[in-house]
């Protein structure tokens, strides 16, 4: 058993599962958005913000953001452990990644529930 403390789920199995579940959620979200754009050819700002004013859409979008964050963390953590061998640089890179993900997530929430 290889121990580690910086991966997302503290277990390869849960990381693996999270990666797949989050991918499915993002795929559904993407399909939904693309379909919505196709079925609303003359889309204006009012309709678009009306869509995001509905609670179910906010929850759905938040779910997609959280999935994206988890997915990105698991994926980028893997990339850093594959390619960055010096521990200091690796931990630095991981810190930058998690901070960026955190910032984007909070920002996303603010946009969703903001004005």
């Amino acid at each position: 058993m290889v121990t580690n403390i910086t991966n997302f789920g503290r277990s390869g199995l849960s990381d693996w599962l999270i990666q797949r579940v989050s991918a499915i959620i993002m795929a559904i979200y993407t399909v939904f958005i693309v379909a919505y754009l196709l079925f609303n050819p003359g889309l204006d700002y009012a309709t678009w913000s009306g869509l995001f004013a509905q609670t179910w859409m906010r929850i759905f979008s938040l779910l997609a953001f959280v999935s994206l964050s988890a997915h990105a963390w698991v994926g980028l953590w893997t990339v850093t452990t594959d390619y960055i061998k010096p521990t200091g640089i690796r931990v630095g890179a991981q810190t930058v990644v998690i901070l960026a993900i955190f910032v984007f997530l909070v920002w996303g929430i603010q946009i969703l529930w903001g004005a």
């Binding site: 058993m1 290889v2 121990t3 580690n4 991966n7 277990s11 390869g12 199995l13 990381d15 693996w16 893997t78 452990t81």
Partner: peptide, 12 residues
Amino acid sequence: LAELEDPFSVFR
């Protein structure tokens, strides 16, 4: 199985 469920042993 317990020895294998970490992020490296199998999941790489």
